[in-house]
């Protein structure tokens, strides 16, 4: 691979991280000594399936291209193992076989957006936690005293305006996590209607008690919104950790957002260990516990 292939890949990576569509870079990080593809070879994959660079165009490359879609979905770096004919191996299988390749898949994309609809106590705590977790934080509220940079110094974007109008304008894609925590159910409903109508968000969650959120969802269905999209709304919002204060509720919400983003089970780690043995090797590498 030429230096200029690398330069082209790097330029696209930088662009993708700054706000582009997102790309996946596959790098051969281990290869058999006599292999057709050598360590360091890189292939960049765009969302439309086009590529830059090469892993020599053989069966390995075809297999990697086919598996890269998964990396777009998981938003996490992972390493996959292949035999020279492109067959997927487990880590153990690769260690046993001398001719195995190890390929690192790295998604490069702009930071995910946490779109907080409602700038009250929970919104404030969410902005802090979301920023801490590496999200680009955006806040929408219709009250100038809540929707301002002084109240939300950690937010990249603060929009003051009518909820429905602001949400119509705001860019929402599969890297956007929308949390509706306004001061009242009317505002939550108006906001949720707009977000569900637009579709495309990675996550939509709405705060509220079971009874009240049930009524809101019923209204959306009566309005003729897609029942599948309505069914995907996370509400009541958050994981069950017994949260009481606004800050604790923000933690419970953020935990659910991360769970959706990373594909976790939401169960206590002490119960998860056994289940891991049942998951495919590609996912297992990523699920190894953290120190």
């Amino acid at each position: 691979m030429s230096r200029n292939d690398f330069a082209g890949i790097l330029a696209e990576v930088v662009e993708a991280r700054e706000g582009g569509a997102g790309v996946v870079v596959a790098t051969v990080i281990a290869a058999p000594p006599d292999g057709a593809v050598s360590v360091g070879a890189k292939l960049l994959l765009r969302r439309d399936g086009s590529t830059v660079g090469s892993l020599s165009g053989g069966p390995l490359e075809a297999a990697v291209v086919a598996d890269a879609g998964e990396a777009f979905r998981r938003h996490a770096v992972e390493t996959l193992f292949y035999a020279s004919d492109g067959a997927r191996l487990t880590r153990r299988g690769a260690e046993a076989e001398s001719g195995a390749y190890q390929v690192m898949l790295e998604p490069h994309e702009p930071p995910a957006t946490l779109l907080i609809v409602g700038g009250g106590h929970i919104g404030k705590a969410l902005a802090t936690i979301g920023d801490l977790c590496g999200f680009s934080v955006a806040v929408i509220d219709d009250r100038p005293e809540y929707a301002n940079k002084e109240r939300f110094p950690e937010a990249d974007r603060v929009v003051c305006g009518d909820f429905a109008e602001a949400l119509r304008e705001f860019p929402i894609d599969d890297n956007t996590y929308v949390v509706t925590v306004t001061r009242g159910h009317k505002h939550d409903e108006v906001s949720l209607r707009e977000v569900v109508r637009r579709g495309g968000a990675a996550y939509v969650g709405m705060i509220g008690s079971k009874r009240r959120v049930g009524a809101v969802l019923q209204h959306l269905l009566e309005d003729g919104l897609d029942p599948d999209a309505v069914g995907r709304v996370h509400t009541p919002i958050g994981l069950d950790i017994g949260a009481e204060t606004p800050e604790e509720i923000a933690v419970a919400i953020m935990a659910e957002v991360i769970q959706v983003r990373r594909g976790g089970s939401g169960r206590p780690m002490q119960e998860v260990k056994k289940a891991r043995r049942g998951v495919p090797p590609a996912e297992r590498v990523e699920m190894e516990e953290e120190g």
Binding site: A76, V77, T79, E106, V285, E286, E289, E290, G291
Partner: peptide, 15 residues
Amino acid sequence: ATVAGTRGSTPRRAG
């Protein structure tokens, strides 16, 4: 230098 994968407890994750 990029962490490509981890096994067991490590200070940082892949990526």
